[in-house]
């Protein structure tokens, strides 16, 4: 009987069937909540009519995709989106790593733990609330920053009419909000590094900095690459909640702050065509998917252990 099953994978499946059973709920979960809903992708190609439903709505081919490219600014907007995400990924990784290493080097005491808690706190404040606070910092009339600048005699900055100041502001805001939380992942990875290596290094006379650069960072390499690959998938995502909360419909800032998400949201918020919205997010996902697969291939070529799959 058993010899009949030729495939190695299938044989393994039958042999360890009870252990594989443990994976069943997770598999079902993905099918029900991640794969079945994908059927909805078809509305990207339809003139979707909610009452007719998924199957009876009229098929219109790629017309929904045209909408995005009809506008004049789609290139600038795509550029902004990718640029912001790359900046977020790069600065975020750097900052999280630095924080994680600094905190672990400090050892474990009450102060470090408090600092850790304070660091992750901003992650739990939602962007709309940050947006409301940011107004009190940035406005020309009553903003804290401009008050301070004029009190020391420096010129004021018109934050809400000057687009060029926003890329750094957005990067800083993103760091403030996400870096602390990201550090936790790296801290967990650092804890997993064999302590004996550090001891051996110290006996051999390695300094603290040398331990960091020769042991900690190389050991973290696969974690860094993995997190980078995962975040690449969202590189066409537009951080709608962040940018819309901070900037809103401000046309002065649009040239530097508009991303795919804010652009589409603004264009469709009143008409609300589900087909066009779906078309754009399909476009974003496909590009994200291709990037992840390609980057994974490259990572695998350079270093076998770093690839995700």
């Amino acid at each position: 009987m058993r010899a009949a099953i030729k495939s190695k994978g299938l044989r393994d499946l039958v042999y360890n069937r009870y252990l594989y059973l443990l994976a069943l709920p997770a598999v079902l979960f993905s099918i029900v909540f991640a794969y079945l809903p994908m059927i909805g992708v078809v509305i990207a190609f339809q003139d979707f009519n909610p009452i007719k439903g998924l199957w009876d709505s009229e098929w219109i081919g790629l017309k929904n995709f045209e909408f995005f490219f009809r506008g004049q600014d789609w290139l600038i907007i795509t550029y902004n989106t990718v640029l912001y995400n790359l900046m977020f990924i790069a600065t975020g990784t750097l900052m999280s790593l630095t924080l994680a290493i600094m905190l672990t080097e400090l050892g474990k005491n009450a102060i470090v733990r408090t600092m850790q808690s304070i660091m992750i706190l901003p992650n739990f404040i939602s962007w709309p609330i940050v947006g409301l606070f940011s107004v009190t910092f940035f406005t020309a009339d009553t903003g804290v920053i401009n008050h301070f600048l004029s009190s020391i005699g420096a010129g004021t900055i018109d934050f809400y009419t000057n687009a060029d100041v926003w890329p750094p502001i957005l990067v800083l805001m993103n760091l403030w909000k996400t870096a602390g939380f990201g550090a936790i992942v790296y801290m967990a990875a650092i804890v997993g590094i064999d302590k004996e290596m550090y001891e051996a290094a110290r006996i051999d006379g390695a300094s603290r900095l040398q331990s960091i650069f020769r042991i900690t960072l190389p050991m973290l390499k696969s974690t860094i690459v993995m997190l980078f690959l995962l975040s690449l998938g969202g590189i066409f995502g537009g951080n709608l909640d962040m940018i819309f909360s901070l900037v809103g419909d401000n046309s002065f800032l649009a040239s530097r702050t508009d991303t795919i998400d804010t652009y589409v949201f603004r264009a469709l918020r009143t008409s609300g065509s589900l087909g066009m919205t779906q078309a754009i997010s399909l476009y974003q996902s496909i590009v994200g998917f291709i990037l992840v697969v390609a980057a994974n291939k490259i990572a695998g070529k350079l270093d076998k252990d770093s690839a995700l799959f």
Partner: peptide, 23 residues
């Protein structure tokens, strides 16, 4: 429908908004 969905129509009214607000 597709012509009306041109995203630049929103931009036109959005561009003009700054003038309505005196900015």
């Amino acid at each position: 429908k597709n012509e009306l969905a041109n995203p630049d129509f929103v931009k036109v009214s959005n561009d003009e908004l700054a003038y309505k607000l005196g900015m």
